[in-house]
């Protein structure tokens, strides 16, 4: 008979002496080989260009001047231009009212559009969460705006919003909502409204689907219990559903918010040259390519990056959104 070994643990073995099997070493080596191409590509298309953009923001680079790109420090951001006679003025991005206008436009657009999208998305998700014949059809229908290229939806709405021949003016006048046609996209009063209108149409589906996914993960027995207890559905929504789908909403909102803060395509096509709708991205690109002010545009891009990064960090921290994916 063999004796049992129920001896006490012996002295700790130093961790450094731990030998890995060939399997483990092979796996780790393979992992890095597998990761290298992806990392290289991301370095090339993300890290390096970002560093270059930041760098260019500190230079006087112009696309029209070959060899330009001397280091000029913070001049693109803020610079005291001395007229030589004791007079002078602050110039640079931080002193540029147009830039601040763009920042304001972007934030305004983001807050209004994302708020409407969240509320509408919640409503659509609630409807889609109900049982009815043809639910698949409706879900497919709301995917259509999501799938249509932004440029195409901008053009479609541009046409519908046309001041003379647009169907929207026709519709609103028939309904008696307006007395005269409105030049939606070119009038300073309505340009932003038009942009928000199109953005809401295009991106509410995304919001609704994310919220719907959150709703469908909810345990059904909670609702049955609430029903048995005779709790009013509205109360159930605010006391049960909403708190439980809050994480899903938070994630959806942050995705939409990051998208809205960098909006470009829609505005470029729908309301070009309208000061009311120039956003940070539009402003940066104008300076980069249209105004031959590459360095200044780079500085604006850098600021945009910092603003978005800052807002994201604050939001994630404040909302405690779990993005790590580790449970």
């Amino acid at each position: 008979m063999v004796t049992a070994t129920s001896s006490l643990p012996q002295a700790e073995i130093p961790a450094g002496r731990k030998k890995k099997t060939q399997l483990t070493r092979e796996k780790i080596r393979a992992a890095w080989i597998f990761l290298t191409p992806m990392i290289l590509v991301l370095l090339a298309v993300a890290a390096w260009p970002l560093i270059r953009t930041i760098w260019l923001g500190f230079t006087d680079a112009r696309l029209s001047v070959p060899g330009s790109g001397q280091w000029i420090g913070f001049e693109n951001y803020l610079f005291w231009l001395d007229y030589g006679d004791g007079e002078g003025e602050w110039i640079g991005l931080l002193a540029d009212p147009t830039w601040w206008r763009a920042v304001w436009n972007t934030v305004y657009f983001t807050v209004i559009a994302v708020s409407i999208e969240t509320l509408l998305g919640l409503l659509v998700a609630l409807v889609l969460n109900a049982q009815f014949a043809g639910r698949g059809f409706v879900r497919a229908a709301i995917l259509v705006p999501w799938a249509i290229p932004t440029i195409v939806s901008a053009k479609m709405w541009d046409w519908m919003l046309n001041d003379q021949f647009g169907i929207l003016n026709d519709m609103f006048m028939t309904l008696g909502l307006i007395s005269a046609p409105i030049a939606w996209t070119s009038s300073p009063d309505t340009a932003m409204a038009a942009v928000i209108m199109v953005d809401v149409w295009k991106t509410t589906p995304f919001m609704a689907l994310l919220i719907l996914a959150g709703m469908q993960m909810l345990p059904g027995d909670v609702y049955e219990a609430a029903k048995v207890d005779g709790i009013h559905p509205v109360k159930v929504f605010f006391k049960v559903t909403l708190p439980l789908i809050k994480p899903a909403i938070m994630v959806a909102v942050i995705f939409r918010m990051l998208d809205s803060l960098r909006i470009f395509d829609l505005i470029y096509v729908l309301t070009p040259n309208n000061a009311q709708t120039v956003t940070m991205s539009v402003y940066a690109r104008q300076h980069l390519f249209d105004f031959d002010n590459f360095a200044y545009g780079s500085a604006a891009s850098t600021l945009l990056f910092l603003i978005i990064a800052g807002i994201t960090i604050v939001y994630i921290y404040a909302g405690r959104v779990n993005l790590s994916g580790d449970k």
């Binding site: 270059r52 953009t53 940066a284 690109r285 545009g297 891009s301 990056f305």
Partner: peptide, 26 residues
């Protein structure tokens, strides 16, 4: 691994305009 995953996630949130100048140059 954790840092790498986090970095990848961050890149997906990059505003494209932030890399436009650098990419254009490249």
């Amino acid at each position: 691994r954790g840092i790498l995953l986090f970095t990848i996630l961050s890149v997906s949130m990059f505003p494209q305009i932030a890399v436009l100048a650098g990419l254009f140059e490249m």
